[in-house]
Amino acid sequence: MIRYALACDHDHPFEAWFGSSSDYDDQAARGLVECPFCGSTAVSKQIMAPAVAGTKKRDATPDLGKIQTMMMQAAREVRSHVEANFDYVGDTFAREARDIHEGRSEKREIYGEATPAEVRALKEDGVPCAALPPALVDPAKAN
């Protein structure tokens, strides 16, 4: 299979796949290659870089330590953002989330504590909620 960058005489760019370069030539000569935007069959190939597989061997094993470090940093950033921008409501989270959802309390972003049963009940009733990543020790502050 070969992919060509094409354009019609109205300068509409598009791509198309062909079994071989001769397949493109044959179909274009018979007027079978047409612009998907305007239907013009006056189509020509455009300059494009070929997709060539590299010769360098790539390490198939991901760096799990690096991935874990990135994930922990992301979790810290999420928690930090929530703590800085959301209202902490403590152990009244389930009641307050339900009140906000049902319009009995002002709409705002909150966080707090809830039991697994409370979270299940909120989700069953369509009240949006999600677990906050746990507070992680900053590696720079760990001994």
Rank of each mutant, 00 (worst) to 15 (best):
E118K: 06
A42V: 10
A130P: 03
K57E: 06
Y111E: 06
G112Y: 10
G103A: 07
R104W: 06
A60W: 02
L136I: 14
R95T: 05
H101L: 02
T69K: 14
K56T: 00
A53Q: 05
R76A: 08
Y111K: 14
A114H: 06
E96N: 02
V78A: 09
D91A: 06
S44T: 14
L64G: 08
Q46K: 12
A135L: 12
D91E: 12
C129L: 02
K123V: 07
Y111C: 09
S105L: 10
P50W: 02
M70V: 09
T92Q: 11
T69P: 04
A49P: 04
A117M: 04
G103K: 07
P139G: 13
S80F: 08
M70I: 10
A75Q: 14
P134W: 04
I100H: 04
V43C: 08
Q46A: 10
A135P: 04
K56G: 00
I100A: 05
P139Y: 14
P134M: 10
V127Y: 05
F93P: 00
E102P: 01
R76C: 12
E106V: 07
D99V: 00
V89R: 09
K141C: 05
A53S: 01
R104D: 01
A130Q: 11
G65D: 15
V43L: 11
A74I: 10
D63T: 09
D138F: 09
I110K: 08
T115K: 01
L136M: 12
M48N: 05
P128S: 09
F93M: 01
V89S: 11
S105F: 09
H81M: 10
K57F: 01
V82K: 09
K141F: 13
F93C: 00
F93E: 00
V52I: 10
D87C: 04
L122E: 00
V52E: 07
D87N: 10
I110R: 06
T55K: 02
H101C: 01
I67V: 15
R58T: 00
Y88V: 09
R58F: 01
E124T: 03
A51Q: 08
T41Q: 11
Q73D: 11
T69N: 12
K56R: 08
P133N: 02
D91H: 08
P133H: 06
A97E: 03
E83D: 03
V52C: 01
G112M: 11
E109I: 08
Q73P: 07
L64V: 15
K57A: 04
E96Q: 07
V78D: 09
S44M: 06
E96R: 12
D99E: 12
S80A: 12
E96F: 05
Y88M: 08
P62H: 07
